[in-house]
């Protein structure tokens, strides 16, 4: 690994948080995220987000093992809003309840706020109580309900954190 200074890596509770560096981390990210997903993503979905917004992708490392990842984007929505979007978030099952998810989300919100984001949004299944708890604890609220949003017919919620 390269020096921690360059990555702006931080350590908390024994977990090291680093920024995305290169395509060589892609298989690890995909492996981690794929496990939690109800819908498949092709490698190009990951590439679209991560190559366009590499600074908005953070990884949680336990030693050399990747135990958490967050993938975001930030662009202008409806020509007025600078909207951050959390596309993917995953934490290794064995490492849950250690605030790894919250730390990753906070890191990405900070990065997006620094780039002048007006709001941050994401979608999650209404049945995903742990995700809802995580985001709502950070100040996200449920902005919209999306009826039968997912392929499996479950409703989704659009969560939003207004920064301005």
């Amino acid at each position: 690994m390269v020096s921690s200074e360059e990555n702006e890596s931080t350590v908390s509770d024994g977990i090291r948080y680093i920024s995305y560096e290169s395509e060589s981390q892609m298989p690890g990210i995909m492996k981690l995220i794929q496990k939690d997903l109800s819908e498949p993503y092709s490698i190009y979905t990951y590439r679209y987000f991560i190559h366009n917004w590499p600074k908005l992708c953070f990884l949680a490392m336990d030693g050399e093992e990747m135990v958490g990842a967050i993938v975001c984007k930030l662009d202008v929505h409806k020509q007025i809003n600078k909207r951050g979007y959390i596309a993917m978030l995953a934490v290794d099952e064995r490492q849950r309840r250690r605030k790894i998810g919250s730390t990753l989300v906070l890191k990405s919100i900070r990065a997006m706020a620094e780039e002048d984001a007006d709001e941050i949004v994401l979608e999650t299944e209404i049945t995903n109580k742990s995700a809802l708890r995580l985001y709502e604890n950070l100040g996200f609220v449920r902005d919209k309900r999306l009826f039968r949003y997912y392929l499996n017919g479950v409703d989704a919620l659009r969560l939003k954190l207004w920064l301005k």
Partner: peptide
Amino acid sequence: LPLPHKEFDNESVRYRHR
């Protein structure tokens, strides 16, 4: 009442958008 993490939560902003 459990309140959200202070760093980014802002009641006034939330109120305005709601």
